[in-house]
């Protein structure tokens, strides 16, 4: 894989070890992720993919017993430093979860939420941002006539695209997605995949997925984890056709996991 210059690195983990209490779940992980690419994290359940993803926006901070060694660098800054305001960090880094989790508010309010908590009151700006974000997440045409309806009345696939719109409204530069399509039907999944493809132009995307074909279809690079180790990280093409490690080969071909 090509070496990245400091400027090209959007996200980086350096000698990262993560523990929950006494249990070590990530072991000396090193990775550098290039801007405007899609990176897939694959590996068997429990190997630490979600934990790793969540270190990039410090969502592990609330987990009891969480401890880490090593550094996480976002846009050249160590985000676990004291002076970093975690709320500011998370505005730059959107997150989409496994299960769609829209707020129990209207569709409009869901997308406007991020702006409102920042104290933005300008109605016109809010309306424009909501429209733009819903268009970006390919949901606008389906909901434009009933923005006042409860977000919970949408289908699962629509809810997930709403959650993406909600994240995009904050104009982040990074999107973290933790198995965003695993709870969805094939049609909704296809829509989300198309969307990720589109979004790549403007965002750096990291996606955890269980679905090998999905990783193959949408990602530029793939990282394979096994029991807390980053076994192999390379271009997706390479990982899927000619991986270096036998363990990767076995996983890809479905011999375990």
């Amino acid at each position: 894989m090509e070496k990245l210059s400091i400027k090209e690195k959007k996200l980086e983990a350096i000698n990262l070890n993560v523990f929950y209490g006494a249990k070590q779940v990530l072991k000396d992980v090193n990775i550098a992720i290039k801007a405007n690419t899609v990176t897939a994290f694959i590996g068997p359940s429990g190997c630490g993919k979600s934990t790793f993803l969540r270190t990039f926006n410090r969502m592990n901070d609330y987990v009891e017993g969480f401890r880490k060694e090593g550094d996480i660098i976002v846009d050249g800054k160590d985000i676990y430093q004291k002076m970093i305001r975690v709320e500011e960090l998370r505005k730059k880094i959107g997150m989409v979860f496994q299960k769609p989790n829209p707020f129990p508010k209207s569709i409009f309010e869901n997308v406007a939420y991020g702006l409102k908590i920042q104290g933005i009151k300008n109605k016109k700006l809010i309306e424009e941002t909501v429209e733009k974000s819903l268009k970006q997440s390919a949901l606008w045409d389906e909901v434009k006539d009933d923005l006042k309806k409860s977000a919970l009345s949408l289908s699962g696939g629509q809810q997930q695209r709403l959650c993406i719109a909600r994240a995009l409204a904050l104009e982040p530069s990074i999107l973290l997605m933790d198995e965003p399509a695993s709870a969805l039907d094939p049609i909704s999944t296809a829509k989300i995949e198309d969307l990720i493809w589109e979004l790549k132009q403007k965002y750096t995307i990291v996606i955890v997925t269980h679905n090998m074909q999905q990783a193959g279809r949408i990602s530029d690079n793939t990282a394979f984890f096994y029991m807390g180790d980053l076994v192999e990280y390379d271009e997706t093409k390479k990982i899927f056709t000619n991986p270096e490690k036998e363990r990767t080969q076995n996983y890809i071909t479905g011999r375990f996991g």
């Binding site: 926006n57 969502m59 609330y62 709320e87 500011e88 960090l89 998370r90 505005k91 959107g94 997150m95 979860f97 299960k99 989790n101 829209p102 707020f103 129990p104 939420y113 991020g114 908590i117 920042q118 959650c163 909600r166 994240a167 904050l170």
Partner: peptide
């Protein structure tokens, strides 16, 4: 549900 809290924290609340 915890997922709602995470959604809110994830957006910088």
């Amino acid at each position: 549900p915890k997922s709602l809290r995470e959604g809110a924290y994830g957006m910088g609340s």
